[in-house]
Amino acid sequence: MSYRFIELSVTDQVAWLTMNRPDVHNAFDDHMIAELLDALAAVDRNDDVRVLVLRSNGNNFSAGADLSWMRSMADKNYDENVADATELSRLMQRLDELSKPSIALVQGAAFGGAVGLAACCDVALAEAGASFCLSEVKIGLIPAVISPYVMRAMGTRQARRYMLSAERFDASVAQQFGLVHEVVDNLDQAAERLIKQFLGNSPAAVSAAKQLIKDLDQQPLDEQTRRTTIERIAEIRVSDEGQEGLSAFLEKRTPNWKQG
């Protein structure tokens, strides 16, 4: 697929996925969602990619849903709206379940669905001037599709306030609530530091750890959960990268997945 509203490039095992509609503050519509879905699928399939960075061009990360797109949805019937929302839901799920670690770089405003994108990434970094808003109730809607991811990131208590009030909150508050991991002066420098950290780790182990987190999230600490963790560590220990990592550690050498 050729892209109109996003850019995708791969450099040194890092996929840079950039939302590129600065004229509308990177608001997304059905076309941009389709492009993002395609790009994420390509990243997941590409064995040369070990980290994804999600970012945007312009002054703002994303204003959320495009106004023209929302107007068109108002003219659609229930079934058409279900089909439309399904694609946005698929986007959130695909980003959330990506097999490679993901980093969101947030500048300026992140409104509505853009908060969901940040919540779906493994790490979210924000500039000090960034701001966030779950603004849907202001126009008679609800942040339904993104709500599971936002509530998981912020916690139910804080989500109740900001999903109901539609208050705007700054990056420091977002960090306090867990939506953002770090507030930084320079997004690119902070991203490079994290990328270096990710690239130093076993690709197979990182992917397995992501799957483990997904499978255990919100599960009771019962016998089945314990059994799952026992089996997962046994599987990774006998894998090729598990064997290489242990050997490298014991032999005091660099494992073969590290660059340089």
Rank of each mutant, 00 (worst) to 15 (best):
S172Q: 15
Q93L: 03
G108A: 07
A153N: 06
V123M: 07
L164H: 03
V137K: 01
G113H: 01
V145W: 03
E127N: 08
A128M: 08
A128Q: 14
Q107G: 14
S131E: 13
V137N: 03
A159F: 13
R160A: 13
I146V: 11
K100G: 13
A104P: 07
V106G: 07
L125I: 06
L164Q: 09
A114S: 05
S165H: 10
C121M: 07
I103P: 08
I103K: 05
L105K: 02
D96Q: 12
I103W: 10
S147A: 11
Y149A: 00
A119K: 00
Y162H: 12
K100T: 15
D122Q: 06
L91C: 06
R90V: 03
A118C: 13
I146T: 11
A153Q: 04
D122R: 05
K100E: 15
G140Y: 06
A109V: 10
Y162A: 05
R160I: 13
V115H: 00
A126K: 11
A130C: 10
A153P: 03
V173Q: 11
F111G: 04
V106M: 12
V115W: 00
M151W: 01
M163G: 12
A130Q: 06
S99I: 10
R161E: 08
I103A: 08
G129M: 08
L117V: 03
G116L: 05
R160F: 14
I146Q: 12
G112R: 02
A174M: 10
A128S: 15
G112Y: 01
R160D: 11
Q107C: 08
R94F: 01
S135W: 02
A166V: 12
E127C: 09
F132R: 00
P148Q: 02
S99V: 12
L117Q: 07
A119C: 00
I139D: 07
E136H: 11
S102L: 03
Y149H: 04
D122L: 03
A171V: 12
V115R: 02
A124F: 07
R90S: 06
A128R: 15
M154G: 09
G129Y: 09
E97G: 05
F111T: 08
T156S: 13
E136M: 07
C120G: 01
A114Q: 00
E87L: 04
A110L: 04
S89V: 02
P101I: 03
S172Y: 15
Q175K: 15
E167T: 11
M151K: 06
V145T: 05
F111E: 05
R152F: 04
F111P: 09
S89F: 01
G140I: 06
G140R: 05
R160K: 13
A159W: 03
Y162M: 02
Q107S: 15
L141C: 03
A144E: 10
I146C: 12
A128W: 11
V150C: 11
A159C: 13
A171S: 14
L105D: 09
C133G: 12
L134S: 08
P101H: 00
M154L: 13
I139T: 15
C133R: 10
L134I: 14
V150D: 04
R168M: 14
L88E: 14
Q93I: 00
S102C: 02
A124S: 15
M154E: 04
Y162Q: 07
R168Y: 10
A118H: 07
C121G: 02
A159G: 11
K138Y: 06
S131T: 13
A109G: 11
S165V: 08
L98T: 05
Y149P: 00
Q93P: 04
Q93N: 05
S165W: 06
K100L: 13
